[in-house]
Simulated scan of single mutants.
Amino acid sequence: MKREIKFRAWDKGYECYLYDVQGAYDTLSGCVKYENGENAVYDEECFAGFLDNEQYIVEQYTGLHDKNGKNIYEGDVVRTGKDNIGDPESMIGQVIMREGSWLIENEKMQEAIELFSEITSREVIGNIFEDKQLLEGKQ
């Protein structure tokens, strides 16, 4: 099974996401776009330079989709299903990578569960930059 590798980046200066930041270099176009479709302006010559630029926080695509078909990225805020078996109770947490596994982590509850599940639903409800308040709640 081939997994798609792609990245998005949070632009600290403009406070918005840039998508397909690696793809821009893979196709040699060097054109990274903001969510509204406008081109980003930066002086990076390669993807590694983009990763090292302190203006951006780069997040990786997990290769998974939520129950609505939305791509799930590192840094997304995800809710687990309330009516599904497998999870002890509904949980909201941030998608992180730990020891080679994608997890949903809720630091307040000191809990982490696997992002992938065949028996429970996952739903992206925001991200850590635009929706920080979502991590405060339990549901």
Rank of each mutant, 00 (worst) to 15 (best):
L18G: 02
N71D: 14
E59P: 00
I128D: 06
Q133D: 12
C31N: 04
N36Y: 01
L51R: 06
T80G: 01
L134C: 05
K138D: 15
I96R: 06
G37F: 00
D52T: 05
C31H: 11
W10S: 09
M109F: 08
L134W: 00
D26Q: 10
F7Q: 01
W10Q: 08
W102C: 00
L135C: 01
Y14W: 02
A112T: 14
L134T: 05
E107H: 10
I92P: 08
F50Y: 01
G69P: 04
Y73P: 00
R79L: 05
T80W: 08
T62V: 02
G126P: 11
Y14P: 03
K82N: 14
K2W: 01
H65V: 13
Q60C: 15
S117K: 11
T120V: 04
R79P: 06
E111T: 12
Q139N: 15
D52L: 09
K138M: 15
G137N: 14
Y19V: 14
V32Y: 00
M1V: 07
E59W: 04
M1A: 10
Y42Q: 13
A112H: 02
V124M: 05
D76W: 03
I113V: 15
Y19N: 09
T62A: 03
K33M: 12
K108F: 12
L28T: 07
L28C: 13
G81R: 09
D43F: 04
Q133R: 15
E44M: 08
A24F: 03
D131C: 12
H65W: 10
Q133E: 12
E44R: 03
I57R: 02
Q110A: 08
T120K: 10
Y14D: 12
N84D: 15
E123L: 13
K2V: 07
K67L: 14
E35W: 02
C16N: 12
V95M: 05
A40S: 04
G100S: 13
A112D: 01
G23Q: 11
Q55A: 05
Q60R: 15
E130Y: 03
I125N: 10
N36G: 08
V41P: 02
S117R: 11
Y42W: 07
S29V: 03
G75Y: 06
N106P: 00
I85F: 08
Q55V: 15
S101V: 07
I125K: 04
I119A: 00
Y61V: 07
I104Q: 01
F7V: 02
